[in-house]
Structures are given as C-alpha cells and as structure tokens.
Amino acid sequence: MVAVVELSEGPGTGAAYAKAALGMLPGMRRGGALPDVELVHRGVTVDRAHLARYDRVCGLRLTDALPGTYPHVLAFPLAMRLMSAGDFPLPMIGLVHVSNRITVRRAIDAGSRLDLAVRAVDLREHPRGRQFDVVATASVDGEEVWRGVSTYLRKESAGSRSEHPDPVPSGGAVWRLTARTGTDYAAVSGDRNPIHTSRVGAKLFGFPRQIAHGMWTKARCLAALEGRLPAAYTVEVAFKQPILLPSTVRFTSSPADGGWEFGVHGKRPHLTGAITA
C-alpha cells in the first residue's frame, strides 16, 4: 500500500541538498528498499515570468503552452525531497541521471492548476551499480496530462563498457555553450548541483570542469524541433558523455516513423533521443 504524503506548499531544493550532504557522512544508516511513498502537491500554478526565463535559457519560444520539459522542473523539488530522505537506500549526491522519458498527453496551458505526484520505483541491479526510476506525473482536473520517468544510477563498480561506442553523425547545427549554461539553468530549474555550477565542485566528482545539465540539453533539443512536434508525444533520451562547459557541440535530427531521431555530439555522443507520436 503506497502512503500518500500531501504537501501544502512546494519544498525548496536548498534544504534537500543540505540533507543530501549530511547523508554522505560515515555511519549514516539507510533503508534497504525504496520508500513506498508518493509525494503530492496539488493546485500548483505557473509563474509566467519564471516560465519566460526558462524558455529563454533553453532556447524555447515564449508561448502560453508549457514546454514538454517544464513540468519536470515543477516536480523536481518533490523528487529532491524524496531522494534526500534519511531512509532512501542510496545517497542522492553522486547519483547519475542516465535517461529520461517524457510523455505529453495533450498541450498544457500555462494557466492550468497542476496536481503533481512523485514516487521512486524499481530499484534494480546494473552492471556498474544499482539504478531506479523516479516517476513524476502532472494532472489537470483529475486527468493525467504529463508523465516523466527519470532513471538514476548509483555507480558502485567500474563495470563493463561497450566495445562498440555509438557512432558520431556528421553535419548538424553547431551549438556553442558558455560556462553560464550551467549556472543559468541552475537558477531557473532549482537544480544547483555543484557539478553544473562550480569548477571546484565538478572536480570533486571527477570532472575537469563543470558540466551541462542533461535536462537543459533535452529541453534545447526540443527547442530545435519546435513547430515539428505532434500535439501528443513521447520523447525519450539517453545521456551519454557529459558536456564540459564551455564547449562546442552539434545537434542532428532526422524524421523516423512519423517522429524524430536526434542527438547531440562532440567528438563522442553526449545525448541520443527519439520522439514518437
């Protein structure tokens, strides 16, 4: 039986990161299974000024319809609260976001009141550690209009790597990303993980400098395909090699079975994705 916890106001992300840092201290005890709980925040409204800032940071058009990735930002504080809880089986800091699937069931007007729900499911083994899914939904008047599934990996071993790396396509649009790409997205998303905002913070986790947010990259891909997306669609991406900032990358896309296949790459693939109606 899933326990439903209703929140009267949205949780902040700063406190969640502080709790996550404390959770890394030696001797902290953790649960052995994912908590059987769903966090719910009802009647969430969109701040149109914030939506406009998000659109600008991600290269999206300014419209009254929510971009497919925007409800992820609204639900992210709930996910943070869930994953930073003391009984969560894996420490939040150090988790790697390896893939994300979003289903937009219909267009969502910015004036809608959204009921958000988040839970973690399917803790499972992975060749390099353990992974699980965070499932978030947004509903309007009892109808689910959006669903996002984020898969996170906790690396616990080097594991095995593919002997056949993904090919890098030629051509495409050139994107030049500055160091502000990380800090600007952190400001509008609330995801202030230091690997995206600080060279020192990035080095603590093995990166030579800060890296772009995967969900910024996904949103930027949708921006590149605006005007060619169906009214209802599923967009799924796999996050490959991180994009170091600043950096120059290429975006490629091609029609496929009534939808699109797309990717972002430098010398190696950074993201691969597909959109289906």
Rank of each mutant, 00 (worst) to 15 (best):
V2I: 11
A3V: 15
P11V: 02
T13V: 09
A15D: 11
Y17V: 07
A18E: 15
A20Y: 09
L22K: 15
G23I: 11
M24S: 13
G27W: 05
M28R: 15
G32N: 14
G32Y: 09
V40C: 13
V46Y: 04
R53V: 07
R56T: 15
D64T: 15
A65M: 12
P67R: 12
G68V: 09
T69Y: 07
A75N: 05
P77T: 02
L78M: 05
M80R: 01
R81V: 06
S84T: 09
A85F: 10
P89F: 06
L90Y: 01
M92D: 02
I93V: 15
V96N: 03
S99E: 12
N100G: 06
A107T: 15
I108T: 06
S112D: 14
S112N: 08
D115V: 07
D122R: 00
R124D: 00
G129N: 06
Q131A: 12
V134P: 07
T137F: 01
R147N: 01
Y152K: 01
L153Y: 11
L153C: 10
K155W: 09
S162D: 08
V168N: 04
S170W: 04
W175H: 02
L177F: 12
A179M: 03
D184F: 14
Y185V: 04
A187D: 13
G190N: 03
N193Y: 12
T197F: 00
V200S: 13
G201A: 10
L204D: 12
L204A: 15
G206C: 08
P208C: 08
R209Q: 08
A212S: 14
H213D: 00
M215R: 13
T217E: 13
A223M: 06
L225K: 14
L225V: 08
E226C: 08
R228Q: 14
P230L: 02
A232I: 05
Y233F: 14
V235S: 03
E236K: 09
K240H: 13
K240Q: 14
P242C: 10
P242H: 04
L244N: 08
L244D: 14
R250T: 08
A256R: 08
A256Y: 13
D257T: 07
G259N: 01
W260E: 05
E261F: 01
G263H: 01
G266K: 05
P269C: 13
T272P: 04
G273A: 04
A277G: 10
